[in-house]
Design a binder for these strands. Sequence first.
RNA 1: GGCCCCAUCGUCUAACGGUUAGGACGCCAGGUUUUCAUCCUGGUAAUUGGAGUUCGAUUCUCCAUGGGGUCACCA
Length: 478
Amino acid sequence: MHTTVRTRMAPSPTGEYHVGHIATLLKNYAFAKQQGGQFILRIEDTDQERKVDGAVERIMSVIHQYGLDWDEGPDKGGPCAPYVQSQRLHIYKEYVDTLVKNGKAYFCFCTKERLDQMREDQIARKELPKYDRHCRALSPDEIQQNLTEGKPYVVRLKVPDAETITFTDLIRGEISIESGNVDDQVLLKSDGFPTYHLAVVVDDHLMEITHVMRGEEWISSTPKHILLYQAFGWQSPIYAHIPVFLNPDGQGKMSKRKGTVSAQSFLDNGYLPEALLNFFMILGWAPADQREILSLEEYIKEFNPAHISAKSVVFDMQKLNWLNGVYIRKLTQEQLTEKIEKYLPADFPRAQLAEILPLISERLVTLKDIESLTDFFYRPISHDKELLLKKADAALVEQQLSQTTEAITAITDWTIPALEQAIRTLQESTDWKKSQYFMMIRVAVTGRTATPPLFETIHCIGQAEVVQRLQAAQETIR
RNA sequence: GGCCCCAUCGUCUAACGGUUAGGACGCCAGGUUUUCAUCCUGGUAAUUGGAGUUCGAUUCUCCAUGGGGUCACCA
C-alpha cells in the first residue's frame, strides 16, 4: 500500500509568527512537495484568552511573503475542512466522549484553587508538580451528581502507572519515557475547548497527516500523544522533532529578549525571502555536495528530514547577512529597483534612483541599507576638519579645493568622462599625492571616507551642489 | 531539581571503523582599486574528558562534564 505523504503546519494565532516557525514550515512544505503529497495549514486557536485579532491573516500573509503556500487550509478549504480548530469543537467533544466511555480518560472537577495549592505543596516538598489523580477515584454516582449540579469540569487523560512509552523520531531514533513522568494531561478544558494535545492528535489523524515535523520543544509531550493514539486505536504519524534556534550569542532558545524573532520583521528589515529560506535550509542540514546556495526547487529535490542535525543551532546573523548579500548581488538592476522601492526614504530623489542604485548595489547587506549608503547624495552633509587635513596641511588642501572648484566649474559638458578627465588632468599636472588628493575630495564632497567611486558620485550629486560643497569645505579648514 | 535530547574549528556543516579531519561564514594577510564594497589568493582555527570494544576509534558502548528542551484548563 502506498499512502500519500501529508504534512502540516499548525500555527496558533496568539502573536507574532516566529522565524523558527517559517523554518519548520519550510521543511514540512518541501518534504510534502518532494513526495508528491500535500501540505496543510491548520489554525490552532483553542486558547480563547491568548487569541489575537487579525493574527490568522498576518500568519497567512507572512507565509506568502516568504514565497510559500499550502494545499489545504482555512481559506482554501479541502477534504478535511474546516481547518480551524475553533470550528471543530463538536468533533473533539465526540472523541472525548469515546475516551471517557472506554475508560481512557476521566472527568475532573478540581478547582483552580485546589490545583494551585497542590502544586505549591508539591514544590515545597520538592516533588515534581503533577496532578494527584484525586478525581480518578470518583465513583460513577459522584461524577453524575457533580455533572447534574453543573459543576465545571475538565477531562483528563488516564496515564498508565508503570509503562515505558516509546516512539521513533526520524532524526534521533528511538525515544523512551516512563509513564510515571507523564502527567494526567487535561484534554478538554472547562470552556469546552480541547487542549493542544487532544486537538493535535484528533486532527492529525482525521486529516491523515503522515509526518509530523515540529519543534523539539514537543518531544517531552509526545508520549501523551502516543498514549492518545493508542487509546483511540490509531496509528501514530512519523515524528521528526526539529532542533530549536539558539540566540545569536548561543545562549538559550532564540527569544525576543535578545533581538528580532518575528518572521515579518526580518522581511521589514530588508532581508530577502529567498535568502532567509536558504539560510533556514542550511542551518542544521547540508546537501550531499555541501553547497550552500540553494533554490527552493533544489531544496525540495534534495532535502532529507532524516539527515537533519539533532543539535540545536545558533542563529548566525553573519551567515544570514552574507547570504542576503549574495542574493542581492544576484538581482538584476530591474529586480533590485522593484524590491528596494519600499525601503526608500521619503526624501529620496526617485528620479535619480537608476543612477544611484548601481553605485551601491554591491554594498548592500540588507535592502534597508539603501538609506545609510546614499543619504549624502541628497541630504546636507557636514565636514570634519580633521579628516580634510588628515594627510596634508591646510595650505595645500586649500589650494587643492580651490583649483578643483575651478576645474569643475569650468566643465561645460557634465559627463563622467569629462569630469574624470578634468580632475585627473589637474592631479597629474601637480605634485599632489593621488591617494591624499582623492580621499580629501571624497571627504569634501560626501562628508565621509567610504563611498562609491568618486567620479560617478560627483556626477550624481550634480555640478552646482558639488561646487557648493567644495566651497563649504574650504570654509571649514580656514 | 526530575525527565528527555544533544556534543567536530568562534558559528553552520562533511568525513563505509583506516583522511595531512574537508567545505562555508567570520576573522587575519596579500592581490585588484582613488576609499569602501565586490571579486581573486592564501592563512588562522575543531573531534569536551575518562574508561572500554577493536590491529585501528571523530565514528560503536558506558560514565563524567557541558549545552539545550520540558515540567499549565499555553501552544
